[in-house]
């Protein structure tokens, strides 16, 4: 998944989860005395983004919407109406296959990743000796460029000479063919994604944990809450905004996983790892079905939009905001 896109998603989720106090923003604006004219200089300052937004975001989005109703192979462009969508939804088994694979990937990689990073953050928060050392160590894998980590894991998953099957054979287990077997290829990609649980998400959890005041734990322990009870009734509620943030961006990110599938399996074997964005990419840049690819892009965009909206709607049920004020 694109780092930039993921980071953007992270920030978006964060920003939206914690809406900037508008009143304050206006107060700042009111205080500033250098407003002459109708904020002319304001537009001048934001113009780079404004132009970039039109050229590289809004423009492409609209073009993409238009293309999704056309047949376009980079040479000829013909309007075909909703045919691309119709083909995708009714006559393209690979579309559903890729969507299903991606759904499975998201369904397992996101909860496992969240639990893993939370677990590591909790362990690191126990005031043990050498914490910064451990933190660095857990963080390192997430620094590795996606292509490089994909290559390393192809080698780790190698059925004969790979590290993983060697370890399994030491335990008396005959390891599977991993990436060569349609049944284990997707689980292998999910397993590999867990190498990155010590990255940004874990650091954000750790910061969240350290933001919980000791007084709460003391109060809870006076009430007799220890261990699990204290985790369940203090840590989890206090951490829920952070969990929410990581969940939203985790889902957005996992829907876009591309590099590992492209490099490690190319979508195989037997399309077992054909993830959504990989199929989109293939349609666009291998089969040059730009119209169909654009339709897929819009379907993806709508899926992410719906998911994000649902999560925000549900958030008030389980996300606890300290002070209770949430606009």
């Amino acid at each position: 998944m694109g780092t930039a896109a993921r980071r953007a998603a992270e920030a978006e989720a964060g920003a939206a989860a914690l809406p900037a106090p508008r009143a304050r923003e206006q107060a700042v604006a009111r205080r500033s005395p250098w407003t002459r004219g109708p904020g002319f200089w304001g537009y001048v300052f934001i113009s780079p983004w404004l132009i970039g937004f039109l050229l590289f975001t809004l423009g492409p989005m609209l073009i993409s919407l238009y293309l999704s109703f056309c047949r376009y192979d980079l040479h000829t462009l013909t309007w075909v109406g909703a045919k691309n969508y119709e083909v995708l939804l009714t006559r393209d088994p690979l579309f559903w296959k890729s969507l299903g694979n991606t759904a499975l990937y998201v369904l397992f990689a996101v909860p496992l990743g969240l639990t893993g990073s939370l677990l590591i953050a909790i362990l690191l928060n126990q005031k043990v000796r050498g914490m910064p050392w451990f933190r660095t160590l857990f963080y390192l894998p997430s620094l590795v460029p996606a292509v490089a980590s994909a290559l390393v894991w192809v080698w780790v998953f190698h059925p004969d000479a790979g590290l993983l099957n060697h370890g399994l054979s030491r335990l008396g287990i005959q390891g599977p063919q991993w990436l060569q077997d349609p049944r284990t290829a997707l689980p292998a990609l999910i397993l590999m994604s867990l190498w990155g649980v010590g990255g940004g998400r874990m650091i954000i959890f750790l910061a969240g944990l350290q933001g919980i005041s000791d007084e709460l734990y003391e109060a809870a322990s006076l009430d007799g809450a220890r261990g699990w009870a204290s985790f369940r009734h203090v840590t989890l509620p206090m951490l829920s905004p952070t969990i929410f943030f990581n969940l939203v961006l985790g889902i957005i990110g996992s829907f876009q996983v591309f590099t590992s599938a492209y490099v490690m399996t190319g979508g195989g074997p037997n399309n077992a790892t054909l993830l959504y964005v990989l199929y989109l990419y293939n349609n666009a840049f291998r089969f040059f079905k730009m119209g169909k690819a654009s339709a897929m892009a819009w379907v993806l965009f709508l899926i992410l939009l719906v998911f994000t909206i649902i999560q925000f709607k549900n958030a008030s049920r389980w996300v606890y905001y300290e002070g209770g004020e949430k606009e």
Binding site: M61, S64, M290
Partner: peptide
């Protein structure tokens, strides 16, 4: 803020065209 939710794969085809 909203633009941050738009993934690269969604706009890569038209960007390529542009």
């Amino acid at each position: 803020l909203a633009t941050m939710m738009i993934p690269f794969p969604v706009i890569m085809v038209p960007l390529f065209g542009i």
